[in-house]
Write a protein that binds this DNA or RNA. Sequence first.
DNA 1: CTGAAAGCGCTTACAG
DNA 2: CTGAAAGCGCTTACAG
Lengths: 355, 355
Amino acid sequence: MGQSVTIRDVARRAGVSRQTVSRVLNDSPRVDPSTRSRVEEAIRSLDYAPSAAARRLSTGRTWCVGVVVPFMTRPSVVTRLAGIELELASTEYDMLVYNVESPAHRDKRIHELSRSGRVDGLIIVSIPLHRYETERLRATGIPTVLLDSHSPTLPRIVCNDIQGGRLAARHLLDAGHEGISFIGDFPRSPWGFSSSRLRLWGLRREILSRGVSFRPELVALGDHSRDAARELARGLLRSRNRPTATVCASDTQAIGVLEAASALGLAVPDDLSVVGYDDIEAAEYLGLTTIHQPLGESGRQAVRMLLDEMAGPRLGPRRKDLPVELVVRRTTGSAPRDIADVDRSAGEAFDGVRT
Amino acid sequence: MGQSVTIRDVARRAGVSRQTVSRVLNDSPRVDPSTRSRVEEAIRSLDYAPSAAARRLSTGRTWCVGVVVPFMTRPSVVTRLAGIELELASTEYDMLVYNVESPAHRDKRIHELSRSGRVDGLIIVSIPLHRYETERLRATGIPTVLLDSHSPTLPRIVCNDIQGGRLAARHLLDAGHEGISFIGDFPRSPWGFSSSRLRLWGLRREILSRGVSFRPELVALGDHSRDAARELARGLLRSRNRPTATVCASDTQAIGVLEAASALGLAVPDDLSVVGYDDIEAAEYLGLTTIHQPLGESGRQAVRMLLDEMAGPRLGPRRKDLPVELVVRRTTGSAPRDIADVDRSAGEAFDGVRT
DNA sequence: CTGAAAGCGCTTACAG
DNA sequence: CTGAAAGCGCTTACAG
């Protein structure tokens, strides 16, 4: 079965002690060259591989990093995950992945993970922690980095959501839009995700800073899904004073908005401009204007920050903000001259009555 | 730092031996109820969590399953991965994920994984193994299940690719198509993926079994990407005797074909029918007719098969085929009456010359 | 440069 | 039902 060759067998074969074999294994300089080559020869001829379990117990390090993600199949999440994997692959660390499906499940996972000694460090993706969870983590002493969520005390990598909202608003305001709607996530979902809220906040600030009035009735929040966004958009777009542009909390939701526009006979971008968020792969082939986040890179940076934390505890909290950027494609354009005209002509198309 | 409470501390606190604590931890029935509750109380008051590393060394089991995937961000791959994670989450096993980016990298990963004792079992996704790799795996004795790839000896879960090709062909033949093209992956990529080849094989067999001639010049193979598929499609669709329908080895490639059709002014499905493969999320909102694979379910089944293997080696090879099904949406329709007409009218649109 | 001793924190038979 | 002994396969000081 292979697995039965131990360090003891190698030592016997090479005529040395187990410690010497261990030194060769760990590249210790305090080994005579000729001894070393004898040991290496023994390792080779016995096809020996050291036991990870034994090494872990004796060194007290697992050489594993745990990654906790919600909704791992979401394009933005899996891209982050791939970034984490890529960076870890260049180290000796392995990646344990836990997909959590509910807030309760999440709490349990994080708690048990932090205490079982299964991982040397933890990366928690997109999940804001309660204060008591943060405290529990500190108590266990396990190095932890948050990716895409905020915390007053834990080290974290965040993309600048407020800036993203501002960029989207600026782009639309420059094109003459004034009725800008926002479709995002429920404000008080049990997950407590904050990105949608922050993006809206940035959008609002930019609009107000331009002296344009912000219309709260154009904000519609729901599930983070295409279907929910489509229904919300349908409502907004049928209203008397409909928006000429919509900013979404994700590309997925933006796709729902495009569907709603299409169903209502509104042309994009002539009648309606749409801006997404994330720049997932689908955004490119749909020609969706969106806010690009450095998703893969954010994962890599989270790993680097975690490695730093594991090397030695830092004094204060650490936080790194990654920039986002606007990617203009084909779903945004100038505001319609006069929205009343648009509505009138849309009306004509339906009922042939001139008003 | 928390981690310093050991089984010894608990034993002392409860006034019993370490073995007794161990029995309580492992739900052994041979413990007196009152002793048990004393131990449980001690565990609680000391906030004790057993060391995974120690348990692993003494039991010889890691309680980890390794998953090796290529291109983890591909929608079809991540869906499989999520299925694996979901099934593992209902067990005590953790999931180690390795994303391999090149065939060389893959060989190294699989080899070292199988020998380091880091995992109790291995799931290898979409990667056909060389014979010598298969032999090496057997030699290590590590239970292994292949998901979405074939092997004469290893246990495996496969979706029926040949059947998928047949279903696509049948659907198109029923709609009157005769010039059916196929856009798939390079036949001899270093990865050795087989699904594209098998789907083409099924397509071909179905066409021939209907007495329709198969036109090899309508088969175009390239990189598994939207861009490559778009360029291949562009070539096919501009040829004199162009196809009226295209089957693709993936939805991603089908999207490239849709782009090519759009660029050439061909209406889908009036001028061209398109069938994808996988039924990823994008297929639904693009209205893409496709072959649905039970991606998540295939991951779950791979875990169950692996757990069986780990419970005890089976006598013979095991293989499970999962069914695929056709999902008809909006990219397929009847064959154009006379393709020459179509080409003529397209020509007119361009140059205004009547032929 | 090398080895004898001790230990990492559990579990597994073996007695009683 | 419970405990003393031994062991899992490494590494870490400590001598020499």
